[in-house]
Design a protein around this nucleic acid. Structure first.
Length: 569
RNA sequence: CGGGGCGUAGCGCAGCCUGGUUAGCGCGCCUGCCUUGGGAGCAGGAGGCCGUAGGUUCGAAUCCUACCGCCCCGACCA
C-alpha cells in the first residue's frame, strides 16, 4: 500500500461524537466514518483490519470442519412467523414491505433461514453432523447504538449453525466450537475469558460467552480468583447454605412506619439492618404481575427471574401498576396476604423473624417467617451475586470485571427444528428433529475490542495478527534519491516477502509521518531518513514497546520477517 | 421510550443570553516562498441556505413553535 494513493484521512482532533477510546481512535486513524446512528462506512485500513479478523475466523471455522455459506439479508416474514419470533423478537427486527406488499425483515440472525435450508436439504443421519457458517453484515435496530463499532446497528458477524442426530452429538459439536473459539480469540491477540452465560429456557451449562476484558465493556462478569470459574453476572450461581432454625418463632406483629418506604428509611426508623428485612418487588412477567422477595440489601437478577418463571420478558412494575395489582402503595408491600403470585430468593428461606411491608400504607410487619406466614409459588436463586459470595465451584473469592462480549455459543436443542419441522431419518428408520447449536462472533466488535485493549496516548497498538498492515516504511527524504531508492527497494522486498506493508511516500514533514504512523498502530515501523545517507542504516521501531534499533535494510527485512512469522504462528 | 445536551466552513469551536455592519477563530484544504527526525513559518486564497419549516419583527444565526438529525444518561430494586 502506498500512503499517497490510499484513503487514510487521519484527524488531528477528535470528533465530538466519540466517547470511548476505540471509537475515537478509529475515527482519528481514518478507519471508519459514520453515515448515521450506529451505521458506519469502513475505509481502506478499517476494512483491512476487519478482513484480518474474518480470515482468522474463517481459517479456524474451516479447521473445525464447518463449511462457509452466505445467506440472504432480506428475509420473508413467513419464516419468522413460523418460529413465533416475528412477534417475540421486538422492535430490534427491522420490518418492511416490498413492492408486492410482502412482509419482510432484515436478518438480525439466521436461525430461521438456516433451519429452512436444513429441512429442505438434510434428510438422513448420513448428512450429519454438519456445521454451516457465514460471515455477513447483520442489521439490528438497537435501542441505543453507541460506542462506534462496539454497538452498531449494522455490523459484521460470523454466525454458525450445527446440526446433529442427538443431544450427545450436539454436545460434541458444541465443544468443537468452544475450542475453535478459544483459538480464534487467542490468535487475534486478545485478553479474554470464556464465561458461562445465561442459556435461557433450555438450561444446562451449554452457553458460553467470550468476553474481552476491558473497562468499557457493557457486561459485568464474575471471575473466581482461585479456580477457572467465570460467569456472566446474569448467570453467576449464588450458593447459600441451608441454615437451621435457631431462633424460636416470634409472634407476628404489626408496626407503624409512617412515610417510611425505602429500605434504608425503614431500617433507620426501626433501628434494624437491611439483612433483617425482606423487600417485596413487583415485576411484570410477560405482563402478569409477580411479587419477588429478596433480602433488603440484595438486588434481583431479572434474567434468573425470567428463567424461573419461564417467561420471555420481565420488567419492574411502576407505582401505578403495583397499586392496581395489589391495592398497596409501593413501599409497604409484603408477602403476607398479598393477592398476586409470589416467588422468593432462596436466601429468604434462611431468614427468621424478619420484617416485611404490611400491605397497608404506613405499616410493616415484624417477626415474619416464610413457612408460617407466607404462601410461596416458587423459590430459587434470584438475586445478583456479590463479591462477598463464594465461588460456586471451589468456594474461593470472587472478583468482578467488565467485559465486551465478542462471541457467544449456544446449544439450541430442537426448538427451531420442531417449530419449523426440520427432521431427518435416523438409523432406526424413525424421523427425528435435528438437534441444533448456534455460534456467533462479532467481527467488527473484535476490532473495536482489540483497540480498546491496546492503545496509548499516541494511538492504536494493533496486535500483529489483526493489524491492517504489519510494517510501515517512512520515507523521510522523498526529494533525496538515495533515501527514496532505499525506501522503495525495501518496500518491494517486503512485498515480495509477502509482508503487508504501507510506505509513507507523502511529501510531508517527518513529524507528521511519525504521528500518523503511531496513530495507525502498525506493529513495526522502518524509518529511512537522513541517517541512512551517512551510515547506510535504517531505524526499526516496535510500536508496542517503543524500542528502536538501527540496522541495515537487509537486516531489517530479515528481522521483521522473522518476527512476523513468529507472531502469526 | 423517559431525561439531558448539541446542530454555525471538511474537523474542533466562538457568536445567541441582551435581534441591527461584510458571521468569526483554530486546524485542515488550495497557491507561492521557505523549511525538512515528532503534527513548522510567512504571504495570499477558496470554502457557509448558521439542521429544516413556519412564526414574531422594519430587521432573525440570535426570540417563539414544530419537525429532523446527532450525542450522553436511564429504561434498576420501592
Amino acid at each position: 500500500m502506498r500512503y499517497s494513493q490510499t484513503l487514510i484521512p487521519t484527524l488531528k482532533e477528535t470528533p465530538a461524537e466519540a466517547e470511548v477510546v476505540s471509537h475515537r481512535l478509529m475515527l482519528r486513524a481514518g478507519f471508519i466514518r459514520k453515515l448515521s446512528a450506529g451505521i458506519y462506512s469502513y475505509l481502506p485500513l478499517g476494512l483491512a483490519a476487519i478482513r484480518k479478523v474474518e480470515n482468522i475466523v474463517r481459517e479456524e471455522m474451516n479447521r473445525a470442519g464447518a463449511q462457509e455459506i452466505l445467506m440472504p439479508m432480506v428475509q420473508p416474514a413467513d419464516l419468522w412467523i413460523e418460529t413465533g419470533r416475528y412477534e417475540k423478537y421486538g422492535p430490534e427486527l427491522l420490518r418492511f414491505k416490498d413492492r408486492h406488499n410482502r412482509e419482510s425483515c432484515l436478518g438480525p440472525t439466521h436461525e430461521e433461514v438456516i433451519t429452512d435450508i436444513a429441512r429442505k436439504e438434510l434428510h438422513s443421519y448420513r448428512d450429519l453432523p454438519i456445521n454451516l457458517y457465514q460471515i455477513q453484515t447483520k442489521f439490528r435496530d438497537e435501542i441505543r447504538p453507541r460506542f462506534g463499532l462496539m454497538r452498531g446497528r449494522e455490523f459484521v458477524m460470523k454466525d454458525a449453525y450445527s446440526f446433529d442426530v442427538s443431544d450427545e452429538a450436539a454436545t460434541l459439536s458444541y465443544q468443537k466450537m468452544y475450542e475453535a473459539y478459544k483459538r480464534i480469540f487467542s490468535r487475534c491477540g486478545l485478553q479474554y475469558r470464556a464465561v458461562q452465560a445465561d442459556s435461557g429456557s433450555i438450561g444446562g451449562n451449554f452457553s458460553h460467552e467470550f468476553m474481552v476484558l476491558a473497562e468499557t465493556g457493557e457486561d459485568t462478569i464474575v471471575v473466581c480468583k482461585s479456580c477457572e470459574y467465570a460467569a456472566n453476572m446474569e448467570k453467576a450461581v449464588v450458593v447459600v447454605e441451608k441454615k437451621e432454625q435457631t431462633e424460636p418463632l416470634a409472634e407476628l406483629e404489626k408496626i407503624e412506619t409512617p412515610g417510611k418506604r425505602k429500605v434504608t428509611a425503614v431500617c433507620d426508623f426501626l433501628k434494624i439492618e437491611p439483612t433483617q428485612l425482606v423487600k417485596t418487588m413487583v415485576f411484570k412477567a410477560d405482563g402478569v404481575p409477580v411479587a419477588v422477595l429478596v433480602r433488603g440489601d440484595r438486588e434481583v437478577e431479572d434474567v434468573k427471574l425470567k428463567n424461573l418463571l419461564g417467561v420471555a420478558e420481565v420488567e419492574m412494575a411502576d407505582d401505578k401498576e403495583v397499586f392496581d395489582a395489589t391495592g398497596v402503595p409501593t413501599g409497604y408491600l409484603g408477602p403476607v396476604g398479598i393477592k398476586i403470585k409470589v416467588v422468593a430468593d432462596q436466601e429468604v428461606a434462611n431468614m427468621q423473624n424478619f420484617y416485611v411491608g404490611g400491605n397497608e400504607k404506613n405499616y410493616h410487619l415484624k417477626n415474619v417467617n416464610l413457612e408460617r406466614d407466607c404462601v410461596i409459588d416458587g423459590m430459587a436463586d434470584l438475586r445478583q451475586i456479590t463479591t462477598s459470595d463464594p465461588c460456586p465451584e471451589c468456594g474461593g473469592k470472587l472478583g468482578l470485571t467488565e467485559g465486551i462480549e465478542v462471541g457467544h455459543i449456544f446449544k439450541l436443542g430442537t426448538g427451531y427444528s420442531e417449530s419449523m419441522n426440520a427432521t431427518f431419518q435416523d438409523k432406526d428408520g424413525k424421523d427425528k428433529h435435528l438437534v441444533m447449536g448456534c455460534y456467533g462472533i462479532g467481527v467488527t466488535r473484535i476490532v473495536a475490542a482489540a483497540i480498546e485493549q491496546n492503545n496509548d496516548d499516541n494511538g492504536i497498538i494493533f496486535p500483529l495478527p489483526i493489524a491492517p498492515v504489519s510494517v510501515v516504511i517512512l520515507n523521510l527524504g522523498i526529494n533525496d534519491a538515495v533515501i527514496t531508492d532505499a525506501a522503495e527497494k525495501l518496500y518491494s522486498e517486503f512485498l515480495s516477502a509477502g509482508v503487508q506493508v504501507l510506505i509513507d511516500d507523502r511529501d510531508e514533514r517527518p513529524g507528521f509521518k511519525f504521528k500518523d504512523a503511531d496513530l495507525l498502530g502498525t506493529p513495526f515501523r522502518v524509518t529511512v531518513g537522513k541517517g541512512f545517507a551517512k551510515t547506510g542504516l535504517v531505524e526499526v521501531k516496535t510500536r508496542k514497546d517503543g524500542k528502536v534499533e538501527e540496522m541495515t535494510p537487509e537486516k531489517a527485512l530479515s528481522t521483521l520477517q522473522e518476527k512476523i512469522v513468529a507472531a502469526l504462528r
